[in-house]
Design a binder for these strands. Structure first.
Lengths: 220, 220
DNA sequence: ATATATTTTTAAGTATGCTTAAATTTACAC
DNA sequence: GTGTAAATTTAAGCATACTTAAAAATATAT
């Protein structure tokens, strides 16, 4: 059984290489996990010996099949807990991440399956991220478009908000921007890429950076 | 913040000296926590330095005010999780202990208060053990009587089942003996102290050992 | 009271997961 | 292609939480 540190390492590699499709280098992981580069190299050796990652010195790491399986298991726990905490205990968007980050390491397969069943086997978490099923299979993602590339005048559904920043999540909640909400792109400011969007008939301004973390689905 | 090991140590001392009213000696704690005597002595020094226990070499340990506060906090988490898992996720009596044992170390004050509110501030867990409130205060226990001292022919309510053995809990569930259930003491066998009790109009035999872990309240 | 048995502590050693500092490798600018 | 900067790894060290084995203190039996 991997320790908490190992689980977090595998999750970080997954998120970096499989989700963000960028190289899981020592310095990237070091920043993500908030430990020194030396600690990353150290752990890389251990996980490589355990057969959970492929590691070539100076070349970054990749998950093996086994490592990917564990990473997906932790991600499954995290995302199910997030949804559970919001749906059952009424936590807010900004409150669930940190709690799930702790619970994900103390949850047996048995218990997470109970939670999964209780929630009726959901496919997406409160950020719109896909929840791996019991076998580690991810549901197919709908075709999404980053808000920063959306067309002026068009209407969309919010399908994914890819950010761990609590202040941002609170702000979005505050203006009523939530998952599955219908919004309209009112205007795009040419000088800095900011967007004006309409949520519940009220206009709001979002920076390009914020917009780049919100993903939309075209209305059919 | 105490580590998981420290939290477990404080919890074990609490259970031994405050609940079971027996001395928290090195060997008792060593057995309870399943580590060597040396590890217990080692940890005693650390917790003593941290002001969480009073420790006199060769004389066992006692919780300080601060140590007791932390122990009660962990016990609160454990008992609330047990109740939550049974009530919300439908786990059985025998399944909740091990899960709660893990979750209790990964639950923030914020989250446990949400769970407490969701359950409407319960006073007793599924074993009938008292749940410390937010301030660490325990509810007053009703006057209870060990089943092994109950009177033949009298009827009682089951108010507490003080055992962590899963097989026993499963057996009790199976014969319908659950918390708040009304039972009747049918007979007591003189040669080994076994009891015959009536649950749901069916007679069952319980050993004296089992009976000594079940606590009853007299019918008014 | 003294010998012996039991309990507890100390000492030495190990694995994990970090740290900082030094050494090494790789990247890139010119 | 060579020098320098950046990234990475190695080395040494530390705290935690264990282990086993030896030493010390306490308890018990006669």
């Amino acid at each position: 059984m991997p320790t908490i540190s190992k689980e977090n390492y595998l999750k970080a590699v997954y998120s970096q290489s499989l989700e963000q499709q960028t190289e899981a280098t020592t310095s990237v992981l070091s920043e993500k996990l908030e430990v020194s580069n030396a600690a990353i190299s150290d752990m890389a050796k251990k996980l490589s010996n355990a057969g959970l990652i492929d590691y070539t010195k100076y070349k970054g790491v990749e998950l093996t099949g086994e490592g990917k399986k564990i990473a997906l298991k932790i991600i499954r726990r995290h995302r199910l807990w997030e949804l559970f905490l919001i749906k059952v205990l009424g936590l807010s968007w900004s409150e669930v991440h940190d709690e799930a980050e702790k619970l994900e390491h103390s949850t047996s397969d048995f218990l997470i399956d109970k939670i999964d069943d209780f929630l009726e086997n959901p496919k997406f978490d409160p950020h719109g991220d896909p929840i791996p099923n019991k076998n580690g299979t991810l549901p197919k993602l709908p075709e999404l478009l980053s808000m920063k590339d959306a067309e002026i005048g068009k209407r969309y559904y919010v399908r994914r908000v890819n950010d761990k920043n609590n202040d941002l999540m609170n702000y979005l909640t505050q203006i009523g921007l939530e998952l599955l909400k219908e919004i309209e792109i009112v205007d795009k400011l040419s000088f800095d890429g900011s967007l004006i969007i309409k949520v519940d008939s009220v206009n709001h301004l979002l920076s390009e950076f914020v917009a780049s973390h919100i993903f939309l689905e075209k209305e059919k």
